[in-house]
Amino acid sequence: MATAAFAKSSTTLSLRRGLVSVLGLLVFWEIGRRLHFPFLSAVPAPTEVLASLDKIVGNSKFWNDWISSFSRVLSGFALAQLIGIPVGLLMAMSRTLRYLWFPPLEILRPIPPLAWVPTSIIFWPTTELSIIFVIFLGAFFTVVLTVLGGARAIDERLIRAARSFGSKPRDIFWRIVLPATMPSIITGMAVGMGVTWEVVVAAEMIAGKSGLGYFTWASYVGGNYPQIIVGMASIGIAGYLSSGAIRLLGKRATPWQRRI
């Protein structure tokens, strides 16, 4: 009774503290810009950003940029999952495949996805495809490794128990391996989504003509600085929404997991 009330008040206390620090930072930022503090003098202030907001939001091109970025993200990400999850599972289950594919993957993986941009542009006929390819690469390695790790970490005893029931390999895969690996698959998706947005933004800045990354860069080049912040915030929100969608998916797919 008393303890329940205490618990509730402690979460509101945390929230209040959080609000205080965020607001405090915004105020500091505003003041810093006005008073020309060392690092903040050229950065547009929160009030300036808010002022430019309705012009941007009214412009349909801005929303087209949202759609462009999202469609690239979805294409590249989906492709990475469609190919990466099976590859990871196969490598977990077959020792031969694992030994065969792991070294080439380990060699290619440390190459940052963006380093592939020029090669991708040379190879693919359209800019769109080259951006999606780079996104795919970024998420692919993450997915494969996470799924591989998760599948290999399945408690051997669960598989033995299934075997002693007389399960066929097909059953073992669909009823044991896949559900047991699901948390790792979801984790791989979550991390992969983060990587995906990083790559999209950079790829659009380097080689794109549309999208939120391009919007942010173009705002800088065009001298419209408050728009930069709007662009950044948009990307952050977009990324957050995407991760949120994955987390929701994760809860549905793994109802037995305790909420972290």
Partner: peptide, 11 residues
């Protein structure tokens, strides 16, 4: 944190 690092380039 959700803001991709590279979105910070102009800032």
């Amino acid at each position: 944190r959700p803001i991709p690092v590279l979105a910070w380039v102009p800032v």
